[in-house]
């Protein structure tokens, strides 16, 4: 738990002051969006909340719905 907080704080400390000083708003917004996603995922991971796996969704989509599958031999 403490590692997550340290690492995420570290990420902010490295990136944000430079972006603010150079007034790169677009990069800052992109960074913030990705950072929030990462933060949410990280907290979910640490708090043992199951994270939905995209590949499971894809597997479901391709095999069950579209029916394309290699025969298990």
């Amino acid at each position: 738990m403490i590692f997550i907080i340290l690492i995420y704080a570290f990420i902010i400390i490295i990136n944000v002051p430079g972006l603010l000083k150079r007034k790169e708003w677009r990069e800052l917004t992109a960074f913030s969006i990705l950072y929030v996603i990462a933060l949410v995922l990280g907290l979910m991971y640490v708090l043992d909340i199951p994270i939905p796996s995209p590949m499971k969704g894809l597997q479901h989509l391709i095999v069950d719905i579209l029916g394309i599958e290699y025969p298990q031999g």
Binding site: N15, G18, L19, A30, F31, L34, A38, G42, I51
Partner: peptide, 12 residues
């Protein structure tokens, strides 16, 4: 700037 957040996302 995108590198570190993406790295965190990737790891998780």
């Amino acid at each position: 700037p995108l590198v570190l957040p993406l790295a965190a996302i990737e790891v998780i």
